[in-house]
Design a binder for these strands. Structure first.
Length: 562
DNA sequence: GCCGTTTTCGGCCCGACTGTTTTCAGTCG
């Protein structure tokens, strides 16, 4: 049981307490315990009473935790779960609908599932409740549809984990295979896990797969050349395209690309990729592309986006690789809401062979994330200076993730902003804005001379919430004009800037930074996911900010401050 | 549930924003 699991359990517990009308001060005591968990900085499992109390837990909370660790159940939670239908717990995932509103829906309209909630909204029954009106009802309906639609979909990072397990099973069975569809294309969200596999027949494959207990096969959805099913754990669709050994290269290629990609050809003198594939067998992917008069597209680029035409015309750039990344920018320490100390964040990255760390804790307005006061900035800068002496030639850059305030201003006075090596400017709240407001707010921040990097441009959380709408062109153009770099926030939940806009940014000469937004040392690894989507837009080493060497980026940051 | 005593009980308490109201409750970062 990780700290994350423990926090999750306590979060659900506080929500259920609120739902069942517990004394709010009692609920607060549990919330305080969650705070202590987040700040613990060490695995809690197995700690005894005294050790927990030393970490700031109260006597009662320490006791509850110790009991949980030894018995395996959190009694308070089990008790409340018993009293709450599962569907009501599902409903708690709706944003903008808290425990009070859930209680009203449940107790007064007897709604205890997302399905029933959807029907009640459609029948306009929800707006009859006190405290609800047409606008709230519409918002709830939109949310329910969003949740239902996304329930079986996975973030790429999670899909990749499942894919690894499936591939390991196939390998163990000696079944030749290749990733296909959204997995091979590294799409940010995956609806279906697709694989091309070699088998004598689909029935032979089914026999093998029947031993795989994480998958339920679906006969009705399967066809002679495709075996379909779903993951037991999430209900996500899985499909296997069956082919013979001699067709493997051709079919694996065909299934790796977006359908629109197969309509490409070098010029009118050539057949399309689709026509090429229909003709004969091929011994290599190079051969397939050559026959269509095309350069070889790396797998991430096998999309049908309009800009793919540029790659045909101008050639395909050498895409950035994980090994090209020399440092990591936009990271949090326990000065704000990170899990690890500044030293831990730095030493870990140094040990991994990187040259520099950009630390950018939250700014003062983000008090929910323990944002930094001017005094604490000074304190952090002193610590950075000391660590830099100790860890040289590794270097920590002084940064901040400055909130972009409602009116587009940054979160500190100019003289404070001037003390940083770099500033990541991001919007955190409020997030509800129309396109014109959001765009103007961003552009004002981009125009501020202190802004080095624009953070997560739309604020989206994939599968959880849509970002605020922005005029991408206007925002990117403003970055180009003011020399501001845009991050691809590499958290699998964000991947924001979206890759569909990254090519436009690159064409305007705007560099991108693959920023993990790490809140713990494990978070650095997310840079890989930003890199994958960056590659989908043709991102090169030269256009990646954190592919600069220490010397280069040091010079760059200095030049920006003039 | 926590805290601190005028010590075992009563008060504790983020603030901005939204959508619902007609002065405020609920939600959220």
């Amino acid at each position: 049981m990780t700290n994350k699991d423990i926090i999750k359990g306590f979060r659900l517990l506080t929500q259920l307490m609120e739902l069942h009308g517990a004394n709010p001060f009692k609920t607060r005591a549990y919330s305080t315990a969650i705070q202590s968990m987040e700040n613990a900085g060490t695995p809690l499992i197995g700690l005894n009473n005294d050790e927990l109390i030393a970490l700031g837990f109260s006597k009662t909370m320490a006791e509850k935790l110790v009991n949980w660790f030894s018995s395996g159940t959190l009694d308070d939670l089990e008790e409340l779960k018993e009293k709450t239908p599962e569907g009501v717990i599902d409903m708690m995932g709706l944003s903008g609908v808290g425990p009070k509103k859930i209680a009203a829906l449940w107790k007064e309209l007897e709604i205890d599932s997302l399905d029933k909630l959807k029907v009640a909204c459609e029948e306009n029954k929800v707006q009859t409740l006190k405290g609800f009106a047409a606008k709230t009802e519409a918002k709830i309906l939109q949310q329910v549809d969003f949740l239902k639609e996304n329930k079986k979909r996975l973030h790429y990072a999670k899909a990749e984990k499942f894919a690894e397990v499936i591939v390991a099973f196939l390998e163990e069975k000696g079944i030749k295979n290749s990733l296909a569809g959204e997995l091979s294309l590294k799409r940010e969200v995956v609806d279906t896990l697709s694989f091309t596999v070699v088998a004598e027949s689909s029935s032979q494959l089914k026999t093998s797969l029947s031993e795989f207990n994480q998958l339920i096969l679906d006969e009705a959805k399967s066809s002679p050349l495709t075996v379909r099913g779903e993951l037991v754990e999430t209900g996500t669709s899985v499909e296997f395209f069956v082919c013979r050994e001699e067709e493997f290269i051709k079919i694996a290629f065909q299934k790796s690309a977006a359908p629109e990609h197969l309509s490409l050809r070098g010029s009118a003198d050539y057949p399309t990729l689709r026509d090429v594939l229909n003709k004969t067998e091929y011994s290599s992917i190079e051969d397939i592309y050559k026959n269509a008069g095309l350069p070889v597209f790396p797998v991430e680029l096998r999309e049908g986006e309009e800009y793919v035409g540029d790659f045909i015309k101008n050639g395909i750039p050498t895409l950035v690789e994980d090994e090209d990344l020399k440092g990591s920018l936009h990271n949090h320490s326990d000065y704000s809401d990170g899990q690890n100390t500044l030293r831990e964040m730095a030493e870990y990255l140094k040990a991994k062979g990187y040259e520099y760390l950009g630390i950018s804790d939250h700014s003062k307005t983000a008090f929910y994330a323990n944002g930094l006061s001017v005094e604490r900035i000074e304190q952090q800068h002193k610590e950075i200076d000391a660590l830099n002496k100790e860890l040289a030639p590794f270097k920590i850059f002084k940064g901040i993730e400055s909130d972009i305030l409602n009116d587009g201003r940054l979160d500190y006075d100019d003289d404070v902003l001037a003390t940083f090596d770099f500033v990541v400017s991001s919007i955190h709240s409020p997030l509800t804005m129309d396109k014109a407001t959001a765009t103007a707010r961003l552009i004002k921040a981009i125009e501020h001379p202190a802004t080095t990097i624009l953070g997560h441009p739309t604020g989206r959380l994939l599968l959880r919430r849509e970002g605020y709408p922005i005029d991408h062109k206007a925002v990117i153009d403003a970055c180009a004009k003011h020399g501001v770099i845009i991050e691809i926030n590499s958290s699998p939940w964000r991947l924001d800037l979206d890759w569909r806009w990254a090519k436009y940014a690159l064409d305007q000469g705007v560099k991108l930074s693959l920023n993990p937004d790490a809140h713990a040392v494990e978070g650095y690894a997310d840079m890989h996911y930003g890199l994958l989507v960056g590659r989908k837009a043709g991102l090169t080493k030269e256009m990646t900010l954190n592919a600069m060497s220490l010397e280069e980026i040091e010079t760059y940051f200095k030049s920006r401050k003039k």
